[in-house]
Nucleic acid binder design. Sequence first.
DNA 1: GCTTACGATATGCGTATGCCTACTATTGAT
DNA 2: ATCAATAGTAGGCATACGCATATCGTAAGC
Lengths: 139, 139
Amino acid sequence: MATERPDLAAMLYPLVRELIALELPVLAAHDVSMWGYSVLTALDDTPVRTQAALAEAIGADKSRIIGTLDELQKAGLIERTPDPADRRVRLLSITPLGRRVRRAVRKEIQAQEEQVLATLAPADRKTFLRILQQFHASR
Amino acid sequence: MATERPDLAAMLYPLVRELIALELPVLAAHDVSMWGYSVLTALDDTPVRTQAALAEAIGADKSRIIGTLDELQKAGLIERTPDPADRRVRLLSITPLGRRVRRAVRKEIQAQEEQVLATLAPADRKTFLRILQQFHASR
DNA sequence: GCTTACGATATGCGTATGCCTACTATTGAT
DNA sequence: ATCAATAGTAGGCATACGCATATCGTAAGC
């Protein structure tokens, strides 16, 4: 049976808070919002998609995502092209600039994350990352 | 060097979202808010404290925590007694009822968490929990 | 052709958040 | 005795969120 321990959320939430605090300055330096970065990440990993599908994929609200897309488009980081096959649909794609920004941001963010990961023993660090990727891939 | 991987927050946040979704019905069933549960947990683990210290401990706003304390007090889950030594201070303590509620909630929450933890191999599960507790204890 | 369904968009509502100010009672130092 | 600092409390303000609804153009089945 389980040993006495705090709830998972109680342990994870402060960690996430700390990680977000580490991310914010990086995002601000690149003029990208959290949602914007989330969109760039999703588009870089999976090229085209409808906006509704994108919203669902990143856990955002379908109607609230539009301002984010507007900003990204205006900054030249993504493109919204009407689908010739279904003119209701806007095909989303990341631009080369968007890709560069996304990767630069990710690199800096992961550098910040070292402050957290460095506290783990090498074997633990490896296991931890593997488990998280497993969770991430399975949902 | 680091293998290509999503950001920690990108992997952790969906997980936390899922865990919170599992918690909410449990909390609702016991008529306790998330902040309320957070307060009960803090007080059960460390008996007395001033409200300001409590707020800081659970990462809440000093002024926004008051409604939560009012509710908990009204429900008989905590007590606020003036400190005889410094009458500005209200000493906070969890009541026996509060303790029972907190522990019942935690038990049910951790039962829900099994849906997440059960996907891990036994060794991974053990390591994962150990790492999280390590993070949790270190901040 | 007409009706129904769907994608993108805009907007409103209720609520929660972080941050900040102000007020009262009380303390502690001068 | 006076004054600055502190704990708890209350409230305002700007922002963000999830949820719901409405509109408009388009698509597809009948």
